[in-house]
Amino acid sequence: MSRVRGWACAVALVAASLLTNPTAAQAAPTAAGDLTTAVTTRLLDRASATDAGLRGAGADNTRVTITRRDGQTWAFGTAVVVAPAQEGQYPAGWLFVAHRDRAGWQVAFDGEANFADLATAAPARVVSQAEKNVFTTSPSPMYAGGDYRTGMRLPFAVGQSWYLTGGPHGWAGSDTPWSSIDLSGGDQRVLAARGGTAYTMCRGWIRVIHDRGYSTDYYHLWNSISVNGAGVGEGAYLGDTGTDVTCGGAASGRHVHFALRQNSAYVPIAGHNFGKWVVMGGGATYQGYALHGSAQVNVGGALYNYGALGLTQAIIDANGGGTVNKRSGPGTGYAVVGSVGDGATVNVACSANGTTHTGRWGTTSLWNKLTDGTWVTDAYTWTGSSGPINGWC
């Protein structure tokens, strides 16, 4: 991409506001008593502040799962508010750490200011060291800063083609941000888009927390794995596509509802790359398309999974042309020393400024030096960033 302009600038402003998350308040002590009650009380407050569709939900609409506990002082688990079983409704869920002191239970959800502090202080039998490393890392808001790199594949086997049955839409369908897409077909096996730490939010719903502040949600799964903070590699089996709505909502036809989060909040999925396809939004929910170089697949079409795009790799986008010239230096004043085809994956060694060009992603003077020593203009590459992805030359 190299440049993310126009529609993406507006989307970035939305993402920035989401990452600020006004609900991420300090965890307040809850009166001494039952832990589940304490978590449920906080959960209903958090859900009602996050999703208007869940306001008014009662304790009978919640699922609090305490997966680890250390006596009467520490606990860890998942907390979910079940949505109504109807179209356009989806559950809301978080991880939590709880600590009991003289004032009662303090409960913090991921994304709240006190979560990392409680996770750090918790004994290892409640929050593992690997989880502490994930929870206490403070990634910069890279999405809001114009960095759309995910390092993710599509959530199915490399080499397969699945149908894009739903373009960018909200986690609950019509809500914002448009964080999700729907995919179906192939061998129906849903796989982790990138390695990370996995949690079962409820039956049919898996969340994987990755690096760089990202996490991915997978909903409507059949035969979903039961996992509680285990590390999973890229391509790990999570379940099969299905129509499971254990935690609410509705589903018609087998598929996976695949959503993107960053810094504990759903973020717009448009502009990000999965399996070397850039997801693009449409004029309304469930519309849109995906780009691999100049190749465009609309909703209803099949996406071939090329595998993850590395964080120092780029996709050549000839903007409708067949090839892009490679030169001996960063500009058109240097000799042409070859060409590279539209849709090709290239490895970037470093970048420098040179002559200015305009491509699909905007106008730029940035040039990328490839690992074979040749140069291509950034106007005809998708890197996921408006700047260098592997330093300056």
Results as ranks from 00 to 15, higher is better:
321 G>M: 12
101 D>Y: 10
215 S>L: 03
206 I>G: 00
31 A>H: 07
183 L>S: 06
312 T>D: 14
171 W>F: 10
300 G>F: 06
342 D>E: 12
263 N>P: 01
228 N>C: 05
190 V>E: 03
57 A>D: 01
325 N>R: 12
251 A>T: 09
198 A>R: 04
187 D>E: 13
63 R>L: 12
246 T>H: 13
115 F>E: 01
257 H>N: 08
153 R>S: 15
317 D>A: 08
268 P>E: 07
340 V>G: 01
332 T>I: 13
174 S>T: 12
140 S>Y: 09
48 S>V: 04
343 G>M: 08
62 T>Y: 00
77 G>T: 08
304 Y>K: 12
194 R>L: 14
385 S>I: 03
253 G>N: 11
106 Q>K: 14
225 I>K: 08
239 G>E: 04
130 A>D: 15
326 K>W: 01
286 Y>F: 13
107 V>L: 09
328 S>A: 15
279 V>R: 03
82 V>Q: 11
287 Q>H: 11
192 A>Y: 04
116 A>W: 03
148 Y>M: 11
260 L>N: 02
326 K>T: 12
234 E>F: 05
331 G>Q: 12
359 G>M: 03
31 A>M: 10
186 G>D: 08
190 V>R: 04
364 T>W: 02
194 R>E: 13
32 A>L: 10
333 G>V: 12
49 A>S: 13
383 T>C: 09
260 L>S: 04
217 D>V: 04
340 V>D: 00
179 S>D: 13
167 G>L: 04
47 A>D: 00
42 R>D: 07
90 Y>V: 00
163 Y>N: 14
11 V>N: 03
377 T>D: 10
10 A>W: 09
157 A>H: 08
240 D>I: 03
168 P>E: 07
245 V>N: 11
184 S>K: 13
357 H>D: 13
2 S>D: 08
191 L>W: 01
131 E>Y: 01
293 G>F: 02
224 S>M: 07
82 V>W: 00
246 T>Y: 14
169 H>V: 02
88 G>L: 06
391 G>E: 14
316 I>G: 00
362 G>T: 06
141 P>C: 05
122 A>Y: 01
71 G>H: 09
149 R>Y: 07
243 T>P: 02
